[in-house]
Computed example of a mutant assay.
Amino acid sequence: MSSSSTGKPTSSGSESDPQATVDQRKRRRMESNRESARRSRMRKQQHLDELIKQAAQLDEENARIVVQIDAYAQQFAKLDLENAILGARVMELTERLQSLNSVLYMVEEFSGVAMDIPEIPDPLLKPWQLPCPSQAITASADILPY
């Protein structure tokens, strides 16, 4: 009797084993799911942080580009004004030259002396033909920002 009382019955242990195994598997699966969800939330948060950082960088770049565009717009306005002034000056000088040529034609007619009177190009008809092609065109290096 004493030997039978000291030993544990095997039938009662084997009956509780399947339930304990199912519970243990369920618990491990729940822990695994929780861990997977935690990792997923961390990845999502990292992705969100990266997107926020990228948005900030793009905002900074956009601000720099806006400043650069403003500088170019100011430079364009300045050059456009200078171009208009130079165009008016060309027209004024062309009119003066035409007046001087007409005086030379009259002098040639009345004096009878042949004169070499150059033909004046029309800047409106030929805007790229310079009245004085031998004159060099110069530009400063700081016109362009590069």
Score class of each variant (00 low, 15 high):
Arg41Thr: 12
Val66Cys: 01
Arg89Thr: 10
Leu144Cys: 00
Ile69His: 02
Gln57Arg: 10
Leu51His: 06
Leu104Val: 04
Ala20Asp: 10
Glu61Cys: 11
Ala56Pro: 06
Asp49Met: 05
Gln75Trp: 10
Asp70Met: 06
Asp142Leu: 04
Met106Asp: 14
Trp128Ala: 03
Arg25Met: 02
Gln54Ala: 09
Ala63Trp: 02
Arg41His: 09
Tyr72Trp: 15
Lys53Met: 11
Ala55Cys: 12
Gly13Phe: 15
Asp49Ala: 12
Glu92Asp: 11
Ile65Ala: 06
Gly112Asp: 08
Pro118Thr: 13
Pro9Lys: 11
Arg25Thr: 04
Pro9Cys: 13
Ala84Glu: 01
Arg64Trp: 09
Ser99Leu: 01
Pro131Glu: 02
Gln19Val: 13
Ser2Val: 11
Arg41Glu: 05
Ser5Cys: 09
Leu81Arg: 11
Arg34Leu: 08
Thr21Tyr: 08
Glu92Asn: 05
Pro127Gly: 01
Gln68Ser: 09
Gly13Glu: 15
Phe76Leu: 11
Leu100Cys: 07
Met106Arg: 13
Gln129Pro: 05
Ser134Lys: 14
Arg34Cys: 03
Ile137Lys: 03
Ile117Val: 13
Asp17Gly: 12
Arg89Ile: 01
Ala73Met: 01
Leu97Val: 06
Leu144Gln: 00
Tyr105Thr: 10
Arg96Phe: 11
Ala84Asp: 06
Gln74Pro: 00
Lys126Cys: 07
Ser140Thr: 14
Asp142Trp: 05
Gln74Asp: 13
Glu82Arg: 07
Ser102Tyr: 08
Leu125Tyr: 12
Met106Ala: 15
Lys8Val: 14
Pro131Ile: 10
Ser111Lys: 07
Glu119Arg: 10
Asp142Pro: 09
Ala20Arg: 06
His47Ser: 09
Val107Lys: 02
Ile69Ser: 01
Glu35Ser: 11
Pro133Cys: 04
Leu125Ser: 10
Ala114Met: 02
Ala73Val: 09
Asp70Glu: 15
Leu124Asp: 06
Phe110Lys: 08
Asp49Asn: 01
Val67Leu: 01
Ser99Gly: 02
Pro121Met: 05
Ser3Asp: 15
Leu86Met: 02
Gln45His: 00
Arg25Phe: 13
Met91Val: 03
Arg25Trp: 08
